[in-house]
Design a protein around this nucleic acid. Structure first.
Length: 718
RNA sequence: UGGGGUGUAGGCUAGCGGUAGGCCCCAGGUUUUUGGUACCUGUCAUCGUAGGUUCGAAUCCUACCACCCCAGCCA
């Protein structure tokens, strides 16, 4: 219902994303509280099965359940759903507890185990038997499966379905006592063998399992099934909202059936389902993660490439980043696959705030400052947080021989290269300006050393005469350098969805997901770092001291995530410019776009960077005369041009050349080159019916290509 | 060929009858002793499709289509 206030403004609509929007579960809770259900109480639970380590998908559920409790002043229990002794272990309950508290959530004194309720479950089962709603089926597994039917054929009743209550009670007692062997009998709920919902075709409640349970030992040899147990666990604990993932939607009628057919318990919980998290470039099922661990594809559950909480912790992720991520992805019911870039964004955001900056060189190249006295050294002040100098500084030693990043040097510098190259001056961060004078190579022609000179007046890295030095590089003094091992982690899989398509997902493991670099060097202030410490290696990325393998004499750093690298982007575009002569829109080379590229583009791609003359000939270039030119409002780069190309009408063209022609009137009368057969493009200001060729790039040196001479509008340009 | 769900830009997500908003990605720019950060700007959606109701539909109705889940003595 829409309501309007006296000024006519809608009052029930979300204002510009101010209030965090509510997801459907919060709406359900709001409704329940408004109607007084559960006395307004909110009680949730996080119910992991202790048969594996928690992963980022569980984090979503943890944040949801604990978050809801916090938001509504309720409680959230940690409950181990340990109803299957054959897969569960104490190791897992330890790790789960560690992960939940590390994420920042507190279950206080509410740690529960389903196994604590085993006696109660048995009572409930007996109750159901007495009501004629459960029976012992002595069929074997195979017979039960066959009689269950399938989607198109109803199931058939078991021959044991109509045993008397007495017989059932007796049999159930013997199941419990261990008189019956595994697989010879189960307790089943008597519901409906013809139900279109397979879950309702007399689901199994108890199976015989003569295995030792990690908590109850050998006390039991029958164990309850999930559907039978879960609702009761919730009810016993007074849970109000029992949140689980979508695949349990089909089980909800069962959840309700079990609750409705026994005497009322402490509360009547409601099951609500949401979509589990999927992340690009990884897998999320416990089974597959186990396979990776057991198959030796990773070093363990806490391998920093794993999407497990423990792996991410070791990798350097922060609890806050993970919580933020979970907030951003939202809660809904549609299947989705979240871009791992969003996760990376969340860590960068937190780490940018919290990680002190230090200098490290991953792939060292020696640089000798020829006019710096041998044997001398000086120590420069360097801020841990350059954007907040108050947050502390350290001293960084400088001397005649230093290491720089090999990647920061190019013998043949491309355009826009601001870093080391012959003859180019570069700033050494916090230290000084140096100029590369000479390159020393070995027999194989590899660069082994740079010979430079420095400007003593630039101490601290300042420019004494105000000369522009665009590039700043990180470095480490050779004499003072600490050796370090650096592990350059990358995505575990090289395919967005490793599960899609044919073939085993393991075939898509990223061969380069772990790059171990032994010969890195770091500044001496890092000598005392402790396991888990996080830093930013300036200009490179965020790193974390490995909690297992790092030691004072042997530092090991794990790459959490790289810094954003806009040089990589520039370089990509440069390559594209040289191969495609800068025509058309740049920067749309997302993987999808490539696949959907039209035939011509594909043809061009097939022959590498070159196109055939035939392809080029398809471009219809015409002489055009600009008849009018004006600024486009709300578009600071565009000019609207009306161009005559001899068609008897003017073409409207929007061109991004405003920076070069602040007074567009000067363009009127220019003879220019127009791409005449470009597919018209609908822009918010109107239709753009072609393109005017221009030279230069960026804002500097931009100019439309024009002709002099006796050319007529519409003349072909070749 | 049963049942249960879900469909809003490249990816997430809001919208709850008044004509699509946010975040990520991408592109460009300003500031910068990190090609980082911050800030600004921009591109991209006839809301799965087709009908209908209505002055008005992403929102209501109908039909269709696509995708996901279900035949463990797993959870």
């Amino acid at each position: 219902m829409s309501t309007k206030n006296p000024t006519g403004e809608r009052t029930d609509k979300n204002t510009k994303g101010e209030e965090p929007r509510k997801h459907f579960i919060e709406e359900i809770i709001d409704r329940d509280r408004a109607s007084g259900k559960h006395g307004g109480r909110v009680a949730t639970r996080f119910p992991p099965e202790p048969n594996g380590y928690l992963h980022i998908g569980h984090a979503k559920s943890i944040c949801l359940n604990f978050g809801l409790a916090a938001k509504y002043g309720g409680t959230c229990n940690l409950r181990f759903d340990d109803t299957n002794p054959s897969t569960e272990e104490m190791e897992y309950v330890e790790s789960i507890q560690k992960d939940v508290s590390w994420l920042g959530f507190d279950w206080e004194d509410r740690r529960f185990f389903a196994s604590d309720y085993f006696e109660k479950f048995f009572e409930l089962a007996v109750d159901l038997v007495k009501k004629g709603l459960a029976y012992v089926d002595s069929s074997d597994m195979d017979a039960i499966r066959k009689k269950r039917g399938d989607y198109n054929t109803p199931g058939q009743k078991s021959p044991y379905r109509d045993r008397s209550v007495e017989e059932n009670l007796d049999l159930l007692g013997r199941m419990r006592a261990g008189d019956l062997e595994e697989g010879t009998a189960v307790l089943r709920a008597k519901i409906d063998m013809e139900s279109p919902n397979m879950n309702l075709r007399d689901p199994i409640m108890y199976r015989i399992r003569k295995a030792s349970h990690h908590r109850t030992g050998d006390k039991w040899c029958i164990y309850p099934m999930y559907d039978f147990a879960h609702g009761y666990e919730d009810a016993i604990e007074g849970i109000t909202h029992s949140i689980c993932t979508l695949e349990f939607e089909n089980h909800r009628p069962l959840y309700d059936w079990f609750l409705d057919n026994v005497a009322p318990l402490a509360s009547r919980p409601q099951q609500i389902e949401f979509a589990r998290l999927n992340l690009t470039y990884t897998v999320m099922s416990k089974r597959k993660l186990l396979e990776l661990v057991q198959g030796g594809d990773v070093s363990g559950w806490d391998d920093p490439r794993m999407p497990t909480i423990s792996g991410m912790r070791r990798r350097g992720y922060t609890p806050k980043a993970i919580r933020d991520f979970c907030d951003r992805i939202g809660v809904a019911k549609r299947d989705s696959m979240v871009d791992v870039a969003l996760l990376e964004h969340a860590v960068r955001e937190d780490l940018n705030e919290t990680s002190p900056r230090v200098m490290a060189v991953i792939d060292p190249l020696k640089l000798v400052i020829e006019n710096y006295p041998e044997g001398e050294e000086e120590w420069f002040d360097a801020a841990y947080f350059p954007d907040a100098p108050g947050r502390g500084t350290r001293k960084v030693p400088f001397s005649r021989e230093i290491y720089i990043e090999r990647d920061d040097f190019r013998e043949d510098a491309p355009r826009k290269w601001h870093r080391f190259a012959p003859g180019q001056e570069v700033r050494l961060r916090y230290a000084c300006l140096v100029k590369c004078e000479r390159v020393v190579k070995n027999d194989k022609g590899e660069v082994v050393e740079l010979r430079c000179t420095w400007d003593p007046k630039s101490r601290g890295g300042t420019s004494p005469d105000g000369r522009k030095v665009k590039g700043t590089s990180h470095w480490v003094s050779a004499r003072h350098a600490l050796k370090a091992e650096v592990r350059q982690y990358d995505r575990l899989f090289d395919k967005e969805n490793p599960l899609a398509g044919e073939g085993d997902y393991k075939g898509h493991l990223n061969k380069d997901s772990l790059g171990v670099i032994e010969g890195a060097v770091v500044e001496p202030s890092l000598a005392q770092v402790k396991a888990g410490d996080r830093v930013q290696f300036e200009r490179i990325g965020y790193y974390c001291v490995d909690s297992e393998d790092s030691a004072p004499g042997h530092l090991v750093f794990n790459r959490t995530v790289t810094l954003k690298d806009s040089w990589a982007r520039i370089e990509r575009n440069l390559e594209k410019d040289t191969s495609a002569s800068g025509s058309g829109k740049r920067g749309q080379n997302r993987p999808k776009a490539k696949a959907e590229g039209n035939a011509e583009e594909n043809a061009a791609e097939e022959s590498g960077d070159q196109i055939t003359i035939g392809t080029f000939a398809k471009v219809d270039l015409r002489v055009g005369i600009i008849r009018s030119a004006e600024l486009v409002e709300k578009a600071d780069k565009l000019l609207k041009l009306m161009v005559d190309i001899g068609e008897g009408r003017l073409r409207q063209v929007f061109a991004g050349i405003r920076s070069a022609y602040p007074e567009p009137a000067s363009l009127v009368g220019e003879k220019v080159i127009v791409v005449a057969n470009l597919k018209p493009r609908q822009m918010r200001f109107g239709l753009s019916e072609g393109m005017v060729l221009a030279g230069g790039g960026g804002t500097e040196r931009l100019c439309v290509a024009s002709f002099d001479g006796e050319l007529e509008p519409g003349d072909k340009v070749s």
